[in-house]
Design a protein around this nucleic acid. Structure first.
Lengths: 179, 179, 179, 179
DNA sequence: CCCTAATCGAGACGGTACGTCCGGTCTTGTG
DNA sequence: CACAAGACCGGACGTACCGTCTCGATTAGGG
């Protein structure tokens, strides 16, 4: 059960990493709008089919590259550090995040995956923390406000993203609880 | 006041309207991702060049159509009615708004136009109202929170957009002022 | 009967000349393949419609310009001087002639006009001279050989066009008569 | 002799043949002037890019189709049969030949290819035969006269093309030799 | 030590949209 | 009326990507 591999050449893990890197490199270099599967494959030194074999399209490549790289980078111990870390870390991923959210609007299939899995998992963490630390606050609503503000900055004024802004949003959440 | 028309055949205003309508019709019918300049021109009964003559791309067509149609639909007299109306009216424009925000991420040129003009004018209204009615609240921050929450719903959970949600965000603004 | 003109602004003869010159200038500058009605009108300082009002298309503009300019440039007194002059003068009109023959192949309507009128009138002159000076030679065949050789050089090896080549073709005609 | 195939999917020879046939079919059906790359691709059941991948434009497609189809159709054993066959076979290819010669005038790049390769190879055969059978005749001049007359008929009076006309031109060549 | 099977790089394939160019027509105001 | 200007519809151009396919070569088990 462990490997579960039948015959045939095994998947090349190095190609996977090369594709991840190529995608992120090109993304920051020229923007998501100019990102192409062919460009990724070329830069990764890989056949185009190898990309399509593992991912449905460039959005999923980027999403996979992002989640692989950003895994566990954010503290989830308490509400304050989670929100601060979320805002603090965001600037590093602005190009990817903008592209992913754009694609989610254009491709309904990817949109569902993106909202349910990527956004959903982060919402779940925040809602859990709010439920524990701010029992008077509606976790759903808190998530909308926190992530709404975060994404609005990511999409329209990324230069304003700072850890300090996370503190302001935290203050907002607490003022909500006091009502 | 002279009209400023020089020689030559004047612009066909009917074609302009036909293009606007065609763009919005196709947008709601098949989604922004499948919207095509050629498709718009065909449905409007117009040559493709006529579209390119007046707009740089499909995003600007949609933006122009939207602002033409939605002009003065929103009450700007006081903060409460503005925010409520903004949330109440949003569901009607979800397909357009999602497409425009997506394009703003993919095309930096359009992104700047979109943020500065379309989003900027709405921010200006809100900030003015906040400045008058909630003097203790930072208008910039208020705009980020209100429009951030609005856009987050538009982009990820459009079914949740209701006038009632506008009231919740208003309450949030007021709790901010009380701190 | 002299003017015979009804009301309205009279035709601008200067524009006609400007169009002729513009067409020939652009033709030698960039080749018939890059010649456009719009380009001609622009350079002539004339509206596009003014060109279409007088000629069906660019080929007829060039043909008209050519026949206007080259009128009676060729001696038609005797066979020898006619053939020599025809070959001697040809190099000056190579760009126009190549374009006109090309258009005649692509546009059947213009082709008929071109063959019947432009080529036909020159054939008639040659056939008349042959009939008078070389009674043993079939005038039709002689025209095919003389103009065939001429056009072949115009179309494929214009650098070889010289008055001396006209003499060789004349010798050919005379050898035909001696058989 | 190894075939010289590197990696990658090999060229689809059936598509090549389909494109050739489509081009010639459309050419005789509607004329070279209405021939379109897109039309060829459509009729051949082929993507447009596949045409552009192998040929620079429609003229080269037609030229390739023609030389592929007409290969070895003409006897080159002796002067008499070569000239007769050339005139006898020409009527079948009139639409293609007219289009190719037209394009050669409009597109200098194609013109050079056409004159050097297509016309040049036929000239070489004729000049070789003339050199062997009519040593008193200048082969270059003979080629100009024979092909000049042939092309003049192709371009302006295709109905006159017959094998008998080839005999007349042969007689002309022989009369030249006797001078 | 071959045999089967899956992956790999490469690149051609059918499609579709792009943005540009030009043709030929029309609609203005001015002379 | 003709004229300059210029917008209009139509349609071909050549390019760029998409996602699929077909090659020969490679790299693993399993017989």
């Amino acid at each position: 059960m462990s490997g579960g591999r039948g015959p045939g050449r095994p998947r090349d893990e190095q190609a996977k990493r090369a594709i991840h890197e190529a995608a992120l490199d090109l993304l920051v270099a020229h923007g998501y709008g100019k990102l192409t599967i062919d460009g990724i494959a070329r830069r990764a030194g890989v056949g185009r089919q190898t990309v399509y074999r593992w991912w449905p399209g460039k959005a999923d490549v980027v999403l996979d590259a992002l989640t692989t790289r950003a895994a566990l980078e954010i503290e989830t111990a308490d509400l304050t550090s989670f929100v601060r870390a979320t805002f603090a870390v965001a600037p590093r991923y602005v190009p990817s995040l903008r592209g992913l959210m754009a694609e989610a609007q254009l491709d309904p299939g990817f949109g569902e995956r993106f909202v349910d899995q990527f956004l959903g998992s982060r919402r779940a963490v925040l809602m859990d923390l709010v439920g524990r630390e701010l029992p008077d606050v509606d976790p759903e609503h808190a998530a909308d406000v926190v992530f709404g503000t975060l994404w609005y900055l990511v999409l329209t004024r990324p230069a304003s993203l700072t850890a300090a802004y996370g503190d302001r949003v935290l203050a907002l959440l607490r003022s909500l609880g006091r009502v």
